[in-house]
Amino acid sequence: MSCIATETLTDAYRECRRQLLDAGVLISMKVDGLYAFSGPFEEVIERFEQLVTRRARRHRAEVMRFPSIMCRDDYLRMTHIENFPDLLGSVHSFTGKERDHARLLGARSRGEDWTQELCPTQVMMTPAACYPLYPTATGTLEEEGRLVDLRSFVFRHEPSIDPARMMIFRQREFVRLGTAEQALEHRAFWLDEGEEVLNLVGLPVERVVANDPFFGRGGRLMADAQRDQVLKYELTIAVASGDKPTAIASCNYHQDHFGHTFDILTHDGRFAHSACIGYGLERIALALFMTHGFDTDHWPTSVKNALDL
């Protein structure tokens, strides 16, 4: 991308953020990528989730809700730290005695690095809503596999002026564990369903083959492999910029990666495959506000009806 294009994009992000903050949709928390949300913003997320839930009811997914932190040992069994070291969040705290505490306070008052006195806890920030599921799924699946409905705040350390790139945000996921065929069927179904539900609320998304933001030069190889095998699709739409649309949902096929790592087996003893759709709830709400305006009362009737607003 040329410098001019980068500057144009930067301007678009700044302008979009300014509009959202001025309208009170987002509330600044002084750090790029970290915001509080207004009542209308929260209501839109709630209503969108209810729409998703209503449409998914017939599939009878198991509902599981995990917190935004997960077991460090489980995290380390995944390959997140290999692939996304720059995005991880490790939770540290103070476990010392009084003298250590005095040293910490002294360092802080001198403006020095007081964090040297902290130790890693047993937990990491959850990087994707489905990650905590897999360690709980060790064992043999029934023949029909499992369909799980998940939702949590997830953390990714990527501070940005793009208001749609938040460091902590909500993902609503539907995950399938089962055979390769079941996982691929799940992804195909939810790609269509995701597109349909987003169209219903006036978001004409585009379906694109995508890759995750793997770290470093080696990450280019990972990204190339992911695209080559068509493991990831995104549903994208212009939020801040038409030149660089934003992914507001993604559908991923993990092959047997998690089945292998956590000994999740199909009924006939093979490593289970998995696939998921993840709705990025904040991004969907932002897309709705940027597309239909900041006053939900003035949104198109069809959109208000779909969202029961």
Binding site: T79, E82, G219, D224
Partner: peptide
């Protein structure tokens, strides 16, 4: 695997004292 390919890339670069350009960073 994809991840092992990254290790392979780094090991080859070290052994042959080269750096693969971006245009060669593909499967």
């Amino acid at each position: 695997t994809s991840l092992a390919t990254v290790g392979l890339m780094l090991a080859i670069e070290e052994r042959f004292d080269i750096e693969f350009p971006e245009s060669m960073l593909g499967r």
